[in-house]
């Protein structure tokens, strides 16, 4: 190997080792500090050096160009680094200075049901910025795994798990009697009816899921109990059973519309793992109003540089698989039929 090629190779190895050490260091300090650390100016120099060295390597080693797998891998890495830097916070600031592209890097927006908004609270600052279009939230809902279960336990440790089906009676054996779910409430409240307190399902905003349960003892004596999802253990039981009601969330869904002027230009129900892409941004289900379910919180992320990174991912994957697997398989097949 030529001396200068050997130097490039050594430098490459050195940078790989340095990045390994930095990654391990980053793993010790936690995600938030690591993100800050890897985005600092000295690290930007490191990223630039790595990308430059890869390019120099491709120029210096003819094999890195001639062998397609090697070219794809190394060029793929250059794209990943370039796309990552271009899409970073610093990359966005640079684009603002150089090309006056003033894009939001990342932030969050809260939208109330039925209303539309275009204000984004920027991550890491107290600033707000506006998008050139608005998002309207038609509806926000939470879905639960079905069936939902009521759990019953006696003090002796016997347990039952019955699906919540209103009106259906379940036998609990000869000693315990039967149990029936009389009503399921989304927003349990107690009001006055003819001078007596009576529970009702309040349609106004709020959330207090509960079940009305009737337990009939073997001797025919029936008693009503209420079980609250948010207040476990807070059920008026007569001492024989403890009941619990807990639903497992399967999804959070925001039904969104994109509004430009007064025209709806796009529409999508976003959920976890299914973001909305529009106008150079990706919108993610991030959080919600856990008290009343009235608003959703979306994460807004710029897609600048993203597709360059994805192209790099494809090249790296295809390159590695071609160079280390397929090439050999094809060679084997060829030599078999020669």
């Amino acid at each position: 190997m030529h001396k200068y090629r050997r130097t490039i190779m050594w430098l490459g190895l050195l940078l790989i080792i340095v990045l390994t050490v930095l990654s391990i260091y980053g793993a010790f300090i936690g995600a938030e500090r690591a993100e800050h650390f890897f985005n600092q100016p000295p690290l930007a120099v490191f990223w630039m050096a790595l990308a430059t060295l890869l390019i120099v390597g491709i120029a210096a080693f003819r094999r890195l160009v001639r062998i397609p797998g090697l070219l794809l891998m190394h060029a793929g890495c250059v794209l990943i680094l370039a796309g990552g830097m271009w899409g970073s916070h610093a990359g966005h600031n640079l684009q603002k200075k150089l090309f006056r592209i003033d894009k939001i890097h990342s932030g969050r927006m809260a939208i109330y049901e039925g209303s539309s908004d275009n204000r984004v609270a920027l991550d890491g600052t107290r600033e707000q910025k506006e998008l050139p279009f608005s998002l309207k939230l038609k509806d926000f809902r939470i879905e639960y795994y079905q069936p939902v279960y009521l759990r019953i336990q006696t003090h002796q440790g016997r347990q039952w798990k019955i699906p919540v089906e209103v009106g259906k009676e379940f036998p609990l054996g000869d000693e315990a009697g039967t149990i029936k779910i009389v009503k399921a409430y989304e927003n349990f409240k107690v009001g006055m009816e003819e001078g007596k307190s009576a529970p009702f399902d309040d349609p106004s905003p709020g959330s207090n899921p509960a079940l009305e349960v009737q337990i009939t003892e073997p001797n025919g004596q029936a008693a009503t109990q209420y079980v609250f999802e948010r207040f476990p253990g807070h059920s008026h039981n007569q001492g024989k059973f403890s009941l619990s009601y807990h639903r497992v969330i399967s999804d959070y869904i925001s039904e969104l519309q994109i509004v430009e002027g007064d025209k709806i230009v796009a529409e999508k129900d976003i959920e976890v793992n299914h973001p909305l892409r529009f106008g150079g941004y990706h919108f993610y289900q991030s959080s919600y109003d856990d008290k009343a379910g009235q608003y959703t919180v979306l994460q807004v992320v710029s897609d600048t540089g993203l597709y360059v990174v994805y192209a790099g991912y494809w090249m790296l994957c295809i390159g590695v698989i071609w160079h280390l697997w397929l090439r050999h398989i094809f060679k084997r097949i060829q030599s078999k039929y020669k």
Binding site: A27, A31, G84, S106, V272, N273, P275, H282, V301, V309
Partner: peptide
């Protein structure tokens, strides 16, 4: 797709 970032600098990722 899930968290909005292809790289989160999370310890497991690092």
């Amino acid at each position: 797709l899930a968290w909005g970032d292809y790289w989160g600098w999370d310890p497991k990722e690092l």
